[in-house]
């Protein structure tokens, strides 16, 4: 109940943020752009719409998660609203979880709105519903949960700007980590390689949540893969959240 109350208040706060609507606007623009692109392109137009559309949802969702996730906790400290909040009978981890779920709820609503537009565009073009899309969208959401946790973790240890930079790097590296692996094989053994290896192990492979190609091209995905990705996402999110709570537990709000 305490966590729910904080989450709902966070939601109320988050949906007032102008940045959210700016990103929502750009996401809609890029969805419409995907439609225009499809008209100009040769080849399977639905595939282009779906490819570009899902990519925009993932990117703009991630930007929302990062920009809001790094500022929400900071705002409470900066505006000193945290003073009375933490003097109530709540644990600090409950505060952090409340913030987390509030933001997740916000992202869920945003993703829902964008998905609706996306599905309508696809429907208008192809005249049929691609059921696979829903799986792709679900995994985008799972990825957003993980990114939110990461953004909140960074915001517990540094300023909003720095933590946005860290979280954005995390997102980019996470999606390029197959590249990192190739790179890793080329580095000569030594200190540099160890560092790179640590990075590679720590940063999750966000491509695990990317089912765009499979779904757009109607490739079959074995259920184990979905299951693996789900467990992977949940475990990783829990891990990052726990780390954030541990850091937050001992922090001074001076």
């Amino acid at each position: 109940m305490k966590i729910t109350a904080i989450a709902l208040n966070t939601f109320k706060e988050a949906i007032r943020d102008r940045i959210l609507y700016l990103l929502l606007f750009f996401a809609v623009v890029s969805l419409i752009f995907s439609r225009l692109l499809a008209i100009l392109a040769v080849g399977d137009r639905v595939k282009i719409i779906m490819d570009v559309g899902l990519a925009s949802l993932s990117l703009f969702g991630a930007l929302m998660a990062i920009l809001m996730g790094t500022s929400l906790v900071f705002k409470e400290i900066d505006k000193k609203t945290i003073y009375t909040l933490l003097s109530k009978p709540i644990h600090r981890y409950q505060f952090l979880l409340g913030k987390f779920f509030g933001l997740i709820l916000t992202l869920l609503v945003m993703l829902f709105l964008l998905s609706l537009i996306f599905i309508v565009i696809v429907l208008l073009h192809s005249g049929r519903i691609e059921w696979g899309m829903f799986a792709a969208l679900a995994f985008i959401f799972l990825e957003l949960c993980l990114i939110t946790a990461v953004a909140m973790f960074f915001s517990c240890i540094s300023s909003p700007i720095l933590s946005s930079v860290f979280s954005l790097s995390f997102y980019l590296i996470g999606h390029l980590s197959w590249g990192l692996e190739t790179l890793l094989n080329k580095i000569k053994p030594g200190f540099g390689k160890t560092i790179a290896q640590v990075f590679y192990t720590l940063i999750p492979d966000l491509e695990n949540f990317n089912f765009k190609t499979e779904i757009v091209h109607h490739l079959s995905v074995p259920p184990q893969v979905f299951l693996y990705s789900t467990i992977y996402g949940i475990m990783y999110t829990l891990f990052v959240l726990t780390a954030a709570m541990l850091v937050f537990r001992k922090r001074d709000f001076a």
């Binding site: 109940m1 305490k2 729910t4 109350a5 904080i6 208040n9 109320k12 706060e13 007032r16 505006k79 000193k80 609203t81 003073y83 009375t84 909040l85 003097s87 109530k88 009978p89 709540i90």
Partner: peptide, 25 residues
């Protein structure tokens, strides 16, 4: 506890704010 120069969630109304804190209690 009443902090020095208190500041609260400026988007809430007075009664929404108190209701929120009631839930924490």
């Amino acid at each position: 506890f009443l902090p020095e120069n208190p500041y609260f969630y400026d988007y809430l109304t007075a009664s929404e704010f108190l209701r929120f804190y009631c839930q924490l209690h």
